[in-house]
């Protein structure tokens, strides 16, 4: 199963490492608008079979209004969203609107979440759960080890949703390592880097190798 996380650019990407932060900045400099992002999402979801998620920062949703955000996401064929800077304490209204529209709010679980916090997050999880493999921001490689497996195990105790693991997944070894433990692997920076270095053909090869 393939899901596609589509990043809407934001001017203050404080959860992103240098590569994504720079991509956000370049995208805005070249004039990308939220309208264009939804339009692109609509085209992609009409053409490809994979599930499309909006990934970004809460202000994008807040500024247009939560109700409108959910509606536009749905109209564009999106199935959910990931907003890492929106704490669950502040998300009751958005989650309610999402449920009504059949849109999934993807919740993040992190290595610093206590069991109590995981239980709270788990109770609210829909669609899938995004397990952040290590502390920090997007970008640098995560050393896949027992701590990652233990974290996934800990998260499983609090949710029945499929678990996606992201942050620092860079190649096939990581995929192999996670197979049997995670349900989805979330690849971001490594793909962007490949695309920047070797364009579409390189990216095609990169994904073919990942899925092999």
């Amino acid at each position: 199963m393939i899901w596609w996380n589509y990043s809407f650019p934001f001017s203050e990407p404080s959860a992103d490492g240098p590569l994504f932060a720079h991509a956000n900045e370049q995208s805005l400099k070249s004039g990308t608008t939220v309208d264009q992002c939804f339009e692109f999402m609509r085209e992609v979801s009409a053409r490809f079979p994979f599930k499309v998620l909006m990934m970004g920062y809460y202000n994008t949703a807040f500024k247009m209004g939560e109700e409108r955000f959910v509606q536009r996401l749905k109209d564009a064929g999106g199935v959910g969203y990931i907003l890492p800077d929106l704490p669950v304490e502040e998300s009751a209204n958005l989650h309610q609107l999402s449920e009504k529209a059949g849109i999934e709010p993807i919740i993040l679980m992190t290595p610093t979440s206590s069991d109590k916090r995981l239980a709270q997050l788990g109770a609210l999880s829909r669609g899938m759960v995004y397990v952040v493999a290590r502390k920090g921001v997007t970008g640098s490689k995560t050393k896949m080890g027992d701590d990652v497996l233990a974290l996934i195990e800990r998260c499983r105790q609090h949710t029945n949703m499929p678990i996606g693991v992201g942050f620092g997944i860079s190649g096939k070894e990581d995929m192999d390592f996670l197979r049997g433990s995670a349900d989805l692997a979330i690849v971001g920076t490594a793909a962007l880097k490949t695309w920047q270095e070797s364009g579409a053909p390189g990216l095609k090869k990169f994904f073919a190798a990942l899925m092999a």
């Binding site: 650019p9 934001f10 001017s11 203050e12 805005l28 608008t33 939220v34 202000n59 994008t60 807040f62 500024k63 247009m64």
Partner: peptide
């Protein structure tokens, strides 16, 4: 100080 898209 932000635009209509919520970018600063």
């Amino acid at each position: 100080l932000q635009n209509d898209d919520g970018n600063m």
